[in-house]
Structures are given as C-alpha cells and as structure tokens.
Design a protein around this nucleic acid. Structure first.
Lengths: 195, 195
DNA sequence: TCGGAAGTCTAGCGGTGCTAGATTCTGGAG
DNA sequence: CTCCAGAATCTAGCACCGCTAGACTTCCGA
C-alpha cells in the first residue's frame, strides 16, 4: 500500500519533470530543439519512458500549453491597475508582456497545433480561469454590448498584436501607440452610451 | 540564344510548378504532408531538383506565402462595399473569408516561420500592396488618429479573430457579432471627433 | 562526330517520432 | 534467505525527414 503510494508519487513527479524539461528546453532553444531524444536525455531516462507518460510528443506540448494558461492566468490576476490606469489596460499590458517574455510558452498555447478547444465541457480549468480574468477586465467598459463577445474581440486584438509583433509584421517602436489606440477603441462605446 | 531563352523559360515554369504543387499539397493535406519527397514526386522530378530552385524547404514555403499575399491583395481589392456597407467592413469580411477558405495559404503567410519582415526595404511588393488595401479601408474612419497605427490595430484584430477561430478558441456561431463589435469599436472614435 | 558543360538522378548521411522485444529491477511468498 | 512473477526500463530498430555528394545522362556547339 505504502509502496504503491510512493510509486504513484514518484510517477507524478516524473510526469511533471518531463513537462518542465520540455518547457525549459523550448524556452532555451525553441520548440524545434525539443526532440524526444533530447528531452529523454535531459530527464535522464530513455525515450520509451516518455511514452509511458504521454501518448506522444503532441501530448507533451499540450501539457506544457495547459500549464502555460495557468501561468498566464496568474499573471493577469496579479496585474492590478496602477494609479489612474484602467483594469482593461493593466490586463492588456500583462497579457502582452507574457507573450513577449515567454515566447516559447505562448507558442505552445497558440501556435503549435495541439487540439485544445475552448468553450466546451472538457476545457481545462486553467483556460477557463485565464479567460475569466479577461472577462473581468472588459466588464467595466462593456456598456450595452455583450460581455463575452466583447471579451473575445479584446482577446483577439491582443493575440493579433502579440503574434504579428513577434513575426516582425508590425513597425517596431510603435507598441505603446497601438495599445493606446486599441484600448481607446474598445472603451469608447462606453462613453457613447452616457447621455 | 534562342535555346538559352527556352531553357530559362522552362526553368521559370518549373519554378512556378514547384510553388503551385507545394501550395496544392498543403491545401489538400496540410503543411505536415509537404515533404521534399512527396513534393518531388508530385512535380515528377527528383528531390535535388527542388534544391536547384530553392535554398531549402523554408524557401519554398516562403515563396508560397509571398504569392499568398498577392492573392490576399487581390481579394481585398475586389471587395467593394455593398449597399449601405462601409469599406472597413467589406475589407474585413474579405480578409476573414480568405483566412477561412484558404487555411493552408494563410498558415504559410502567418504561422509557418518564414522570416518575412514587414516595413523594411526588402519587403516584397505583394505584402506592401495587401497592406495598402487595409490602409485604404481604414482611412475613412481614422479621424484624428494615426492612420498607419490604426491600420495595424485593425489588422491585428482581424488576424487575432482569424487565428483564434481556427484553433477553436472562440465560440462558434458568434462570428457576425464579434465582427460587428470589433468594427463598431474601431469606427466609433470617428463619431466622437465630430462636434 | 565528339568533347564538355549543363542537367538530373541514385544513394546515402544524420536526424526525427515512435515501438517491439529483450533485459533488469523489485517486492512478496515460501 | 531464496526465488520468481510482474513491473519498470532499456536497446535497437522502423519508416520517414531535410539535405547533398558524386555518378550518370543529355544536349549544344565546335
């Protein structure tokens, strides 16, 4: 009994060890460098051990991505508006900073194909919670509009800025101006609604 | 002389044949299925022939992407506003339709890493022209704002919607509502500026 | 007619994700 | 303490990947 317990605990630890090693390797050298051989080397087990924990490489990336949503959720939760700053802006800045500072993690969450759908029953809690933070940020400016839809637009804008910036498709150095314009646009309707 | 001419012509035709075959294969089975072996099979030449035309596989994807921007530019140019529709909306709808109907092409342009930077001197004409169409769509609603920056925000929003929709990260069936909200937000400042 | 250049191919390198089957380790029964 | 079943782990290999050296074939011009 106790032995079984220890084994399960060790197994869970190794499971997490693999996920961490994959994330670290990706953050150091990009996802192209994350091969099953290098990953196995890093955790000091042979390749087949990976397959006793995950169905395949995709499942490992997927696990990294889900935990990435957990980290994103934390970052957004921590982002409290500074003096004179709206929550909409504080959250947006935190989101974009996350995308910029952890490109490999963001990649796993959004660029690598990992078959992770939102808004269905089996959506992991991490995803739901991160989305909830964005809903809360949008709520103060929603006005007459539909809250969830507006949040999706807000998120899309941030995601678009994040990815286009990364691919060098936007002018550099205009980051602040873009954010200003984007947030201004999303908020303005609120002012419109006031008499 | 005439012989040299014919050879160059044949070479150019084969160059385009390779690009078309790569695009078609990607559109049929996704970019994962585009291997140099299968591509060589399809154009009925051996692998090394590909390398006499392109530096490597990346260069082929890059060529597909650039021509993709050409197609996108055409689609946006064709998209004239219907009765009572703004150009901002007509262009947005054309953009999103392009992303939805040609996912593999859109992938090459934005998801596959192809080292294709915007806004520098060596930016291909196709990219510049597609961007110019978006600038023209945004111009009527720019108000006091900076035109290029607003276009980047517009583009980011569309790109975000396109990619998140594809990865099933947004609710299905709310497409129209999202677009309505997004375009409304981007346009509203214009009305604000009026006395 | 024939030599050389241009064009094209075969065969192979080191890598990939993944797995069958051999081997080692472990813990409880006798 | 010994032994063995089953769990845990590894070695070795498959079919495929991007890419290329070097052999071979084709064709033009002297």
């Amino acid at each position: 009994m106790g032995i079984q317990n220890r084994r399960e605990r060790e197994r869970a630890e190794r499971h997490q060890l693999i996920i961490d090693a994959a994330r670290e390797l990706a953050e150091e050298e990009g996802w192209d460098a994350v091969t099953t051989r290098r990953l196995a080397d890093r955790v000091e087990y042979s390749q087949p051990v990976l397959y006793s924990h995950f169905k395949g490489k995709d499942a490992i990336v997927r696990a990294v991505a889900i935990q990435g949503f957990g980290v994103l959720g934390q970052e957004l939760r921590k982002a409290r508006p500074r003096r004179g700053q709206t929550r909409l802006r504080a959250t947006a800045e935190a989101y974009l900073e996350f995308a910029r500072k952890r490109p490999a993690l963001y990649d796993a969450m959004f660029v690598q194909q990992i078959d992770l759908s939102f808004g269905t029953e089996e959506t992991p809690a991490e995803l739901r919670e991160a989305f909830a933070e964005m809903v809360a940020a949008v709520e103060p400016v929603v006005g007459q509009r539909d809250l969830e839809t507006l949040t999706e637009v807000y998120w899309s804008t941030l995601h678009g800025i994040a990815t286009l910036t990364r691919n060098a498709r936007l002018r550099t150095g205009e980051h602040e101006a873009r954010l200003e314009l984007a947030l201004g646009a999303l908020s303005l309707a609120q002012q419109e609604d006031r008499p």
